[in-house]
Design a protein around this nucleic acid. Structure first.
Length: 469
RNA sequence: CGGGAAGUAGCGCAGCUUGGUUAGCGCGCCUGGUUUGGGACCAGGAGGCCGCGGGUUCGAAUCCCGCCUUCCCGACCA
């Protein structure tokens, strides 16, 4: 661990710590237009790893990737009343193009339910065309009043899935599958981020949805972050866009649609779920660099040994990088710690003389030495142990900072530095306004056993409340 | 969008109250050398529309007005 912090300590000023990490780990910069973000190579590499892990899971549910346009006719948004009401405040609208005023203004997509709906209506003829399972990786624009890198930028990158089904049961089952097998599986097993799985209360639902599911994570300051959401849209968009199919008995029937998304906000979630005062901590299964091989001295034998070590790890399928930079040893390892690379292999003349290298874990600073030839064998094991420990420690934090309470007043108090859990019946209605007045919101509803309800009308539910990003 | 704070070199800051030659400091950067097992050191050097625009003045980083941007706290949202 760094003896002297180069970052603002979390306990001193958490928002500043976050910005320090984003800047010093070379993740992103502010763009020239307020709220826009330049994602730097290291930040983008992490996003690309997220993309590839989620994309594989999305495809295994049967969805196929496609691409819809950035520009949407303004009239499309208006077709679904709640949807337009929800989004109009944050729309960016193009009124001029080609040197002339446009006859109909064009909005920059804040999300694509409307265009996709229009084309679903065109492509779906019969029940044989269903389910129609689409996904796209794209940028979207939602004009933000209070932007923060990764967490809330006016333009961000995401994946948005859009599906159409013959029945509500099928739509609902598929949405659950996405939520559990894509999002939660990714968050838990790759991002090592424990979540509260639940449904949003009606007040927090996506504009136009009949049900919204969430994977709610807890950040190191006790605030909540919605890491991914899945929406059941019922027949709202099908009605608005005439998405009909002909059933087996020849009747025209309205489809049931879903939509679901996860964004570059996850990078912010990653930072705040695992980061410590020395910087970022990236779980090995996600890390674009899992092992950094650092030379202790700039000497030919050391450099050659470092290259050999890296080559052998690379051949074993480990994502590895060699650092034989000219900066001092201390400086270089501090920089890699800020970037959160899980394992550091130190190659120096003293160790080499004994035929060994030193391996250091980023999370606890634990050092161990290994023979050059046995390293390839132990590294994958150490990476898996690191992955498990990281999840376990985040899980402990989540549990330790979730307090069971029996009143809204207690919940507000508990939400100062964590989550509160209480009966939904105690909150629904007036309680929710009381919470909101204190900047606390209902993050999700769960059954008593922690599982995800099908609907908020189930009864006997509990809710998790917290301050949130 | 409301309340607060702030914009001076890549980053962090001083200078502004009380206007007055060439605007400073630390880190970083460049060159050379010595170093290298936890943010190395010495010497030399480069780098500034003092956020932008206007005003006051003989003279503005400094005073006044407007705008932009950043940060914090809210409201709105992934």
């Amino acid at each position: 661990m760094a003896s002297q912090s180069v970052l603002t300590p979390q306990s001193e000023d958490f928002p500043r710590w976050y910005q320090d990490v984003v800047a010093k780990a070379e993740m992103a910069d502010n763009g020239p237009v307020r709220g826009t973000m330049v994602i730097r190579p290291y930040g983008y590499a992490i996003w690309e790893r997220m993309q590839s892990e989620m994309d594989a899971r999305i495809k295994s549910t049967g969805a196929k990737n496609a691409y819809f346009p950035l520009f949407i006719p303004e009239s499309y948004l208006s077709k679904e009343a709640e949807h337009v009401a929800g989004f109009s405040p944050e729309l960016a609208v193009v009124t001029h193009a080609g040197g002339e005023k446009l006859a109909e203004p064009v909005v920059v997509r804040p999300t694509s339910e409307t265009v996709v709906g229009e084309f679903m209506a065109k492509w779906i003829q019969s029940y044989r065309d269903l389910p129609l399972l689409l996904n796209q990786w794209a940028n979207v624009v939602r004009w933000e009043l209070r932007p923060r890198l990764f967490l809330r930028s006016s333009e961000f990158l995401w994946q948005e899935g859009h599906t159409a089904h013959a029945t509500n049961e099928d739509a609902s089952a598929y949405a659950q599958r996405i939520h559990l097998e894509v999002y939660n599986d990714f968050l838990v097993n790759v991002l090592a981020a424990p979540t509260y799985l639940g449904i949003k209360p009606p007040s927090e639902r996506f504009a136009g949805a009949i049900n919204s599911m969430t994977c709610e994570g807890m950040m190191r300051d006790g605030k909540a972050l919605q890491m991914a959401t899945t929406h059941e849209l019922g027949q709202n968009f099908a009605k608005a866009f005439d998405i009909y199919y002909q059933s087996e008995d020849g009747q025209a029937e309205l489809c049931h649609t879903t939509s679901w998304g996860a964004s570059t906000r996850l990078v912010g979630g990653l930072i705040m779920t695992h980061g410590d005062d020395a910087g970022l901590l990236v779980p090995p299964r996600l890390a674009p660099v899992q092992v950094v091989v650092v030379t202790v001295r700039d000497e030919p034998e050391v450099n050659e040994a470092a290259d050999r070590v890296a080559k052998s790890l690379l051949d074993a399928g480990v994502r590895v990088e060699v650092d034989r930079g000219r900066a001092s040893f201390g400086r270089r390892i501090t920089d890699w710690e800020i970037k959160g690379v899980p394992l550091r292999v130190e190659v120096g003349p003293r160790d080499l003389a004994q035929g060994i290298v030193t391996v250091v874990r980023r999370d606890n600073g634990e050092k161990s030495t290994h023979g050059l030839e046995e390293l390839v064998g132990v590294v994958p094991t150490m990476l898996e142990a690191f992955q498990r420990d990281l999840f376990a420690s985040a899980q402990d934090y989540l549990v330790a900072n979730t307090h069971d309470v029996t009143s809204v007043t207690e919940a507000i108090d508990a939400a100062k530095d964590g989550f509160a859990r209480l009966d939904w019946d105690l909150v629904a209605g007036e309680g929710e306004s009381e919470l909101n007045a204190q900047a606390v919101s209902v993050r999700c509803l769960q059954r008593r056993d922690g599982s995800m309800p099908v609907s908020d009308e189930e009864g006997d539910l509990v809710c998790l409340v917290a301050k949130s990003y």
